[in-house]
Design a binder for these strands. Structure first.
Length: 486
RNA sequence: CGGGACGUGGCGCAGCCCGGUAGCGCACCUGACUGGGGGUCAGGGGGUCGCCGGUUCGAAUCCGGCCGUCCCGACCA
């Protein structure tokens, strides 16, 4: 709104483009604290819509929300060996409170496994108390060395689910249930189709037995870890004495899972759909799905204003999130640019000509191939059709993203040379066989900057199972998807 | 933490080399005309030049130190 500068084009410098879109579409702003950001109403509205959708899906599958404290005794974090090793460098620690030095320092939660399982231990006595299926919406803090708006901020908002089960099988099932929910949510709501599967040892969560993940491909063909679901085994249960008496009277440790997605998803949305004109927000996530711009010209603007009110009221009744932009200090053209930059899916123009014709002018954020930017529809038809048009736009965004992901995937890579060649050629996910040797990951990372993003789940594997490891040494034990990542 | 760049009205920048009235574009305020893809004209408000010190009659400009930001790398569930 304020400036007339064009955005840096995506192809020129994707990261400059990304920063400009986030700032100038009013999703977020830099805060006075290093590495943390302020989420502005437009960005927060998108996050709220994500929250609502996920929360519904969690509740439908038997999960409940709860809230646990921000501060965690340092000693808790230190109990699980891998956990503290993984998180130690990025902990923010409170050492002073109430005017004096604390005997026991607290850490600002980087994640809440420890404090939550310490409470579960008090609540669970019998197998009849299991499973415990809880989720919390909260902020966490990780003092990362280098930060980027939404993608890696020192403080971020997320949901973290934590469950306890009587058997390993049931916990594993839960882990996969959530992975499926994440995938469905990312596809149907963000239009950001992820690859799902297992993480390699080197990439798994600090303290987990196995980590499953969603990896989505951004427009610059880099992968974004968009969500994780961890099978924790009994690692935490043993450290926090989370035990129960089984049906046959034995004392056993519970089996845990934890899973989370964060405001990083907003960044993923930006990098999946945005273009050189700014953000494109999928209709289901858009805080405002259609903005009405009344054309206030001539002597008497009352009829146009009244029509705008009436159309807005009827669209609201039809379930469309609609807003009227009747600001008089800026021109209609300036509003169009602003709405495009913010990614509002549809714009409706109502002017004196439309009143005469009994029509509305509809402009979509992305003009379909071969169509004019504005479509003039009879008023009744426009109002009746808009909900369908929004759904169609949503579907189109998802299909476009799937097509792009598949078009940028390279399968059947057999040698390190081919792997490098594919990545240098700008490929997204590159599939190959792998022996399971971490040294191969190291080698590839050094020469290409790419890592194993995921051991793809069944539905993503190549028709032909690779037999040899891409390194040339040994047989392949699993197919893997390589990519450069955020 | 290593390499590089940069800190000047709200935002983006020029001025610095060669010391001498702090400037430009956008934004903002007032008024008029305008209004269907970033309006025009006229008038106006706003800046301890990142901080501390030094040199000098005089420092945005020269010198020293500090702080901060961004990019690349390392780091990162």
């Amino acid at each position: 709104m304020a400036d007339q500068k064009k955005l840096t084009p995506q192809g020129e410098d994707f990261s400059a483009w990304y920063n400009e879109v986030v700032l100038r579409s009013e999703l977020a702003d830099y805060s006075p604290v290093r590495g943390s950001m302020v989420i502005r109403p437009w960005g927060y509205g998108i996050w709220e819509n994500m929250q609502r959708a996920l929360d519904d899906m969690f509740k439908e599958t038997g999960h409940e929300n709860a809230y646990f404290p921000l501060l965690i005794p340092m000693e808790f974090i230190e109990r699980e060996k891998d956990h503290i090793e993984g998180f130690a460098p990025e902990l923010a620690v409170v050492t002073r409170a109430g005017g004096k030095e604390l005997e026991e320092p607290f850490v600002i939660r980087p994640t809440s496994e420890t404090i939550i399982y310490s409470m579960y231990a008090k609540w669970v006595q019998s197998y009849r108390d299991l499973p415990v299926l809880m989720n919390q919406w909260a902020n966490v803090m990780r003092w990362e060395m280098r930060t980027r708006l939404f993608l890696r901020t020192s403080e971020f908002l997320w949901q973290e689910g934590h469950t306890a089960h009587a058997t390993a099988e049931e916990a594993e099932e839960e882990t996969l249930l959530i992975l499926g929910i994440y995938r469905k949510f990312m596809e149907e709501w963000i239009g950001m189709p992820p690859l799902t599967g297992l993480k390699s040892e080197s990439e798994k969560f600090a303290g987990a037995v196995r980590s499953y993940c969603c990896e989505a491909l951004m427009k610059d063909n880099k992968a974004l870890q968009a969500g994780t679901s961890h099978f924790l085994g009994q690692n935490f249960a043993k450290q926090f004495d989370l035990k129960f008496q089984s049906e046959d009277g034995q004392e056993e440790y519970a089996w845990n899972t934890s899973w989370g997605v964060s405001t990083r998803l907003v960044g993923g949305m930006v990098m999946t759909h945005g273009d050189d004109n700014g953000l494109v927000v999928p209709p289901r996530l858009a805080p405002v799905q259609a903005t009405i711009v009344p054309i206030l010209r001539g002597e008497d603007t009352t009829p146009v204003r009244e029509k705008a009110d009436e159309v807005a009221k009827r669209l609201k009744a039809a379930g469309v999130r609609v807003k009227i932009d009747a600001r008089e200090n800026i021109s209609p053209g300036a509003k169009y640019y602003e709405l495009e930059r913010k990614g509002v899916p549809y714009r409706i123009e109502i002017g004196p000509k439309d009143l005469e014709q009994g029509q509305l002018a509809l402009a979509r954020r992305l003009t379909p191939e071969g169509e004019k930017r504005k479509a003039f529809l009879p008023e009744e038809e426009a109002i009746a059709e808009l909900p369908n048009l929004l759904e169609a736009f949503q579907t189109e965004l998802m299909e476009t993203a799937i097509a792009r992901r598949d078009a940028n995937s390279v399968r059947g890579v057999k040698t390190l040379g081919e792997l490098e060649e594919a990545l240098e050629g700008g490929a997204g996910f590159v599939y190959s066989g792998w022996s399971g040797d971490p040294a191969v990951e190291e080698t590839v990372k050094e020469s290409t900057k790419a890592t194993i993003r995921v051991l793809p789940g069944e539905e993503f594997r190549s028709p032909e199972t690779p037999s040899k490891c891409v390194s040339g040494n040994g047989d392949s034990v699993t197919e893997v998807a390589w990519a450069r990542a955020y």
